[in-house]
Amino acid sequence: MKRSYTDLINIYVKDDKQKLKVFDRNGVYLPTKKIGKNNPKAEQIKADNQYRTMWNQTVDRALISGVPEGQILEVKQSEIGQKVKASIQKSGRNPALFKSLIMTAVYALELLISRIFKNKVTAAVVKAEPEPTKVRTVNEPVTVKSEPISEIPKKSELASKYLRLADIYTKLEKQNTAIYQREQQLDCVEKELAGAKGIFKAKQRKELQEQAEQLQTQIARMKQYLSSIVQGYGYKNVKEFMAEFKVSKAEYADYQSAVARWKQQEVQERENNRQSYHYRSDRGGR
């Protein structure tokens, strides 16, 4: 029924970005709950929403990092969906356990994100190493089949949007990288804090604790800003943006390939015409 009313309202909304959407409970995100006026469970719902938001923010980072959506769904279903269902059947609703399960799922996603960042660093190091020089055959003949030259390829609507979407993605990627770097700093500070034991290290512990709290605050704000980047361009969330960006990128690549083939055909046609002209000139001069 809710979806039917939404579809009815959307008939009168011309801008696709302004159309209403029903939350996909089978998707990668967790829904947050609305807090009604004078709700006796307001504080509990607020706390619950904070953990749901934490999961959703981690999902955003995973999508930007390149974690496949199917893998994110597996984590959500195995670490949250299935375990929450089993817990409710066994002992009813337990808010404390729900938070614990979400934190475990968040940690699982963060491990996937960290793994991708480490792979990027490794790939960058390998790429920096000089490649062996390839020996090419001099005057190697290249045969190109001459085909009728078609009209110059035209960009699709999404291909035309690619450069603008790529700019947005670059902003997301930079923010995501900055968050990861802050998290690495926090990890180092927390390890140092754990090792600062004894009565003579009280001052050091206090300073490290303050550093850790400052980094935690910075990270929380940076994660919140991540989703606001795409929302500022009219997208509901990072998932919606990434879906359009990936299709746009693929269509833009197809367009570039088509243009390259078109140019190759054009060059070959000119070469054929030049050879034909010289051939006729040679025969006429005999």
Rank of each mutant, 00 (worst) to 15 (best):
M1C: 10
S4P: 00
S4N: 06
K14R: 15
K14N: 12
D16R: 09
K17H: 14
L20E: 04
V22I: 08
F23S: 03
F23L: 06
F23D: 03
D24S: 06
N26T: 05
N26A: 14
V28A: 14
Y29I: 02
Y29H: 11
L30M: 12
T32E: 06
K34G: 12
K34M: 07
K34L: 11
I35R: 09
E43I: 07
A47T: 11
T53I: 11
M54L: 15
N56F: 05
Q57K: 14
Q57P: 03
D60W: 05
A62E: 00
L63Q: 01
I64Y: 00
G66W: 02
E69A: 06
G70H: 01
E74S: 06
K83P: 05
G92N: 05
N94G: 05
A96C: 04
L101A: 00
V106S: 00
E110Q: 12
L111F: 02
L112T: 04
S114F: 02
N119I: 09
N119R: 11
K120R: 15
V121R: 08
A123W: 03
A123V: 03
A123P: 00
V125Q: 11
V125K: 09
E129P: 01
E131D: 10
T133M: 11
K134I: 04
T137F: 01
E147Y: 04
S150Q: 13
E151R: 03
S156P: 07
E157C: 06
R164C: 06
A166V: 05
I168S: 14
Y169Q: 08
T170R: 02
Q175E: 15
A178N: 10
E183N: 11
E183W: 13
C188I: 15
K191A: 10
A194Y: 10
A194T: 04
K197L: 14
K197F: 06
G198Y: 10
K201H: 08
R205T: 02
L208K: 13
E210V: 09
Q214M: 07
Q216F: 01
M222F: 00
K223V: 04
K223M: 08
Q224Y: 12
Q224D: 13
Y225G: 12
Y225R: 10
S228Q: 12
V238S: 10
A243K: 09
E244A: 12
E244G: 07
K249S: 14
E251Q: 10
D254H: 01
S257C: 05
W262E: 01
W262K: 00
Q265P: 09
Q275R: 12
Y277Q: 08
Y279C: 07
R280K: 13
S281H: 08
